[in-house]
Amino acid sequence: MFEARLVQGSLLKKILEATKDLLTEATFDCSSTGMSLQAMDSSHVSLVSLMLRSDGFDAYRCDRNLSMGINLTSMTKIIKCSSNDDVVTIKADDNNPDTVTFMFESPNQEKVSDFEMKLMDLDTEHLGIPETDYSVVVKMPAQEFQRVCRDMSQIGESVTICCTKDGIRFSASGDLGTGNIKIAQSANVDKEEEAVVIEMQEAVTLTFALRYLNFFTRATSLSGQVSLSMSPEVPLVVEYKIADMGYMRYYLAPKIED
């Protein structure tokens, strides 16, 4: 028996929005720890890693580990049938292993809907991602990062990110010319969410495809802040924290000189 109840049901809409450009299907792994998902996009350039800890749900029960192969397009159709203020419960029954049920309850309990969705048999290949100490970790407002990625993609297809202790510089070049955006570390801020904080061991310069970074910024509504973790010649980690529950992380392989 698996049952996970989320009063803030709209969170699922935001999570699906944050995966839709990268994934069409994925396996949700459910255990007593929580629900997680790890999947690469079809070109194997980026990876989505979602963690929703069990203690972040309003009720959570998982008697035995369960892998649910989900067509995300179908799940999106079903989740769109919920209202933003609905309580969402995800249920899977051991006696009926080929389906998952989504139940939506209005706040006043007057409307209750349930949708049963067929699960898929997916070949999932989990990548082993080692714990890494990154050379640079930048925390900045998620909306600012979204704006930078959008603006840089007006200029070119890739962005070079150069991070020093003074700040972070984004540069792009293309047929029309070049663009640079430099953001300094905040001197002092009233609101933590508005801060730009750079933790640096060594300066790093890396180049990434903007197409993917723009896909990642679909997660902007999940969190006020985003963190960018970088080391020379390894994948970038873009993390959006999901308050009191976990995170949505994206990994992106760098562009490398041949």
């Binding site: 990876l47 990548l127 760098p254 000189e257 041949d258």
Partner: peptide
Amino acid sequence: KAGQSKLTAFFAGP
């Protein structure tokens, strides 16, 4: 020009 690398070049597979 820099080429796009793949994640599988960095992380161990299944």
